[in-house]
């Protein structure tokens, strides 16, 4: 959008970028830069709330999933092995990347 205050006119160029780009935009916003001016449209704010709600829900269902696994005695041993393997690969990778 280009606005000329002197001549009191505006030029608007509309570009359709498709569904894939919509998903990328929704996934990336607000991003780390110029965050103070981003998410200024109500629907983008609502999307931010939805994203937050999704994270809190994921944290809740992962904790409840851990409980549901832990009460199954038969699955405890193999579960601990997998949990340990996952932790080892996660912390190993994070260490290798950041040191």
């Amino acid at each position: 959008m280009t606005i000329s205050l002197a001549s009191r006119d505006a030029t608007i160029v509309t570009r359709e970028t498709g569904l894939a780009d919509a998903l990328v935009t929704l996934h990336k916003f607000p991003g780390q830069h110029v965050s103070n001016i981003r998410m200024n449209w109500f629907y983008m704010k609502a999307w931010r709330w939805m994203a937050d709600a999704t994270v809190y829900l994921i944290l809740f269902i992962s904790v409840s999933g851990i409980y549901l696994w832990y009460v199954l005695r038969a699955e405890r041993k193999v579960g601990f092995i997998l949990l340990f393997a996952g932790a080892l690969s996660f912390f190993g990778m994070a260490y290798a990347l950041s040191h």
């Binding site: 994921i58 992962s62 999933g65 851990i66 549901l68 696994w69 199954l72 699955e75 193999v78 579960g79 997998l82 949990l83 393997a85 996952g86 932790a87 996660f90 912390f91």
Partner: peptide, 11 residues
């Protein structure tokens, strides 16, 4: 269960 446990920290 297994997928959830192995991916827990990544998730």
């Amino acid at each position: 269960f297994y997928a959830g446990l192995i991916l827990l920290f990544f998730m």
